[in-house]
Each structure stands twice: as C-alpha cells, then as structure tokens.
Design a protein around this nucleic acid. Structure first.
Lengths: 161, 161
DNA sequence: GTCAGTGCAAACTTTTTGCAACTAC
DNA sequence: GTAGTTGCAAAAAGTTTGCACTGAC
C-alpha cells in the first residue's frame, strides 16, 4: 500500500500552505526536517531529530531545528509532550483525530490509547468561538505491571514490621 | 466557608501518606512547598514558586524545589504542562476530577474548560489493568479573538496583491 | 537585488549533581 | 546514631541569540 506515501504528500502540502499563509519561505531545511519527523515512529527529542537528519546526510543547525519544530507545532503537524523535565519531547500528528495517551506515574511508560468511545466522546465537544485544530488526552495512573510490583513491595514492608 | 481549609488538610494528608508509603521523610521544606503551591491559583514556574516561598520568609534551594515538585507530580498533587519550551510550568490538582484546557495556538492563552459533557465522557473511559490517578485534556486551536485578527490580516494581504 | 532563513558559536537559562552540614526517624 | 534531605555552588544540559553568509522569492 502506498497509503503512507499519500499521507506524506498531504502533510507536505499542509506545511506548504501554512508557510504560504504566513509569508514564510519554503526552504530545503524546513521540508527535510518535516520528512525526517515523519520517518520517526513515536516520541523524539531535538537531539534525536538531529541524528536522524545527519544519518540522512542532511545537516541542519540547532537554531534551525528549534525554529522549525516551533513552526510545525504552530502548523499542527507536531505535538509537544509534557513528559520529562530535560529535553522537549515531540511526536508527529496526522492531524484531526484526537490522540489519547496512557502514562504510568511509576515507570513512565507511554501507551497510545485506541478507544473508540473515548474518541467519539471527545469529538462531541464543540466549544463556541474556538476553532479546534487537535485534541490530546493524557490518562495518568499506575500500569498493571507496576501495580503488582508496588503491591509486592508493600507486603514485604509490612512483613518486616 | 472553610471548604478551602479542609481541602488543604486533605491534600497534606495525601502527601503525608505518599511519603510514608515510599519511605520518604516528612520535612518542613516539603510541606512548606506543598502549602506554597496551594496558595498559587493557576500555572506557575519553579522561579515563581521560589519567589512565593521567599515572600513567606521561607527559603528553599533550587535543588529542593526540583526534588519536591517531582515528588508532588508522582504523588498526583501537581501536574506538569507541555506549554512553552523554557522553564517547566506546573499547576496544582485537587485530584480526581479530570481537567480540560483550551490552548490557543496563536496567542498561547490557556483557558480551563468547564464542560459537563466532556467530564462525563472522560469518566466513562475505564481501561483494563490501569489504575487511573488523573486525566488531562488539551484542546488546541485558534481562539475567537485570534481568529478575527488573522482573518483581517489575510484580507489585507489579498487586497495588496 | 533584497531580506528571510541558516549556520556557527557564544551567551543565557534551566536543571542536575557532588559534597558538607543538618535533621527526621 | 544513621541515613535521607537540604543548601550551596559548580557543572551539565538545553535553548536562544547575534552576526555574517546564503538562497528563496
């Protein structure tokens, strides 16, 4: 299937339109960065993005990476996650569908939630005088694996008292 | 109403329980920071938190602030937002109720959404083997004010062509 | 040809770390 | 008394900025 290819074309077109609408130039760097981002499956940092690009023999400076990721976030082609305290973490978005993540407070593992009911529930929310570009849900908690580990730990602790 | 006071007591108790459960010490600093956070209404940075504390004549080092905010996030008494690229932005949570935010891509203004339907929709989501502590929804888009401004700008641009 | 965009490196901001002093348990 | 915590300051990590050069329009 060349579904993936057509998604890319669509993404590139949307970025192009965004640049035109905002009187910004269509540079090789900007499209190379967009392409690199759509090569990455999942969450990445600026550092990792720079690595991907240089592997592909395309060098861009830090300044340009920061500048372009900011533009992509504004263009709603990229999201910025609230995880971690160090480097910013990004993830590409295809656009309109709401994305939901399950985040474990303990092991910090992040899982994409694919709940039909949650999706439709979000779709039904329509605020007045606010033009939605995308929605993200974070469900924080303790995953099954950590739950069992913590439970075991607690049991051992009480035993020793 | 002393509702506020009882919420505080409850929060302090929950932090205390969290510390005990994790074999962590109950220090003056930790509770002072928790108190300061619950004095702040809305989003704040580490810097602002330090200011609030020193106004209250309580000095704590950066190291302790970073350490304690991390603990509070783990204890689900504090959330960390994905906004901005510089300093981390935090906000207290009372706990169980899901929180929803409307974020403007243009002016970056953040508004708390109080939608009954959105709340209940989120409440109906129950994943298997995942113990939810809290949920946050971010609805990104363009606010009415920016919408009008951008529209006007676009009109002027076309006029000049 | 002009000026927005880029690269580079330096500056700056934010966060983390090491170690001595302190204090909760 | 013994760790876990804290403060301080230094180091590291991450991001922004200034300026000269380049290339999109």
């Amino acid at each position: 299937m060349n579904d993936n290819k057509s998604i890319r074309e669509n993404i590139r077109l949307r970025f192009q339109q965004f640049l035109e609408a905002n009187d910004l130039r269509q540079t090789r760097e900007r499209f190379a960065i967009l392409d690199a981002i759509y090569d990455i499956d999942g969450i990445f940092s600026i550092e990792e993005l720079a690595d991907i690009l240089s592997e592909g023999k395309f060098h861009v400076s830090r300044a340009t990476l920061y500048n372009t990721t900011l533009l992509l976030v504004q263009a709603n082609l990229l999201i910025r996650h609230p995880f971690s305290s160090g480097a910013a973490q990004f993830e590409r978005i295809n656009g309109l569908q709401p994305r939901s993540y399950q985040v474990c407070n303990n092991c910090h593992r992040i899982t994409l939630i694919k709940s039909r009911s949650l999706q439709t529930a979000l779709d039904t929310y329509h605020p007045r005088s606010f033009d939605i570009t995308h929605r993200i849900v974070y469900v924080y908690g303790i995953c099954g694996q950590c739950e069992r580990a913590l439970h075991k730990k607690l049991k051992n602790k009480n035993k020793n008292t």
